[in-house]
Nucleic acid binder design. Structure first.
Lengths: 156, 156
DNA sequence: ACAAGATACTTGTATAATGCAAGTGAGATA
DNA sequence: TATCTCACTTGCATTATACAAGTATCTTGT
């Protein structure tokens, strides 16, 4: 997680490309927090269920910014804080995240964790698994985030 | 990568669930090899562009089997070999992988690696990025693998 | 104005995941 | 039956992640 070069990828395959950027334990979870739950500050991202460590969060935020998935800007109301918002490249991760939700929802192991999802979460899951309105739903999600909102805004 | 328990997940979120299972540098790349390229033996999986190490491959294959994504069976023609085939749970990863292809294809960094893709690979990419026929294409992919084939069969 | 708390970090150290190189034993091949 | 192929294992180096404690800057309440 230092000043590594971007290019020496293991191959030219697009699957490998995406895995090399996002294939870790935190990147997509943090993008979920920003895109779906509207968590935009260090403190908000820190106090989530997964309990990321402070040093890992700082390193990951710098990494995601370097990868062009988020942008950092000072909070106008509190000079201690920065706000992290998704770039267009980050917003385009929504389809991947939705398919991950659909995959989890289809398989037993996740349900065994208990039906602790909020109504908003469950509502998304139903739409994500339902092929009929999956793609229009995803487009609405992207549009909402582009306008400065977040996906679970209406259920929060 | 030892005999770890499955359940103590960091949260009950379906995104986190999927990330905890697939969020590493190799799982999805290996599933790509099996599902898209029809690579089914240790040796075939070892000799791919990404150059996985022998010990990592052995550990990952055991892991993917333990996660119920692949199934191991002896090769009928060569007693030294096993064959690894995707389970239904593994086949259901295809939509995630396709969205990862679409994401890479949309963004500059991947194209900078050079247009080294085979015609078959490029053909998939075009269809994966095109929302119109994405869903039926993905369903055909799944059906093909369920019948014992692999996605790039016809272009190989 | 000032003390106390909040916020976003850093630092130090431990464990886990990944990477590399060199073996090894069972089974196929000539 | 000698050699080669194949699927590994072992040992060690490096990188990523985890945990606990500390620190500098800014805000808040009095």
């Amino acid at each position: 997680m230092d000043g590594e070069a971007k290019l020496p990828m293991r191959s030219d395959c697009p699957v490998n490309f995406t895995v090399e950027i996002l294939g870790d334990k935190w990147s997509l979870v943090l993008m979920r927090d920003i895109l779906f739950w509207g968590k935009h500050t260090y403190g908000e991202l820190l106090n989530r269920d997964e309990r990321i460590s402070t040093n890992i969060l700082a390193a990951r935020l710098e990494y995601l910014e370097r990868q062009g998935l988020i942008q950092r800007e000072p909070d106008p109301k509190d000079k201690r804080k920065d706000r992290f918002r998704a770039t267009e490249r980050g917003i385009e991760l929504i389809p991947i995240i939705v398919e991950m939700v659909a995959w989890a929802a289809k398989h037993e192991g996740w349900h065994a964790l208990g039906p602790k999802g909020s109504p908003g979460q469950m509502s998304l899951i139903r739409r994500a698994v339902n092929t009929k309105n999956k793609y229009p739903t995803i487009e609405k999600f992207k549009e909402k985030v582009r306008k400065g909102g977040y996906i679970f805004e209406d259920f929060a």
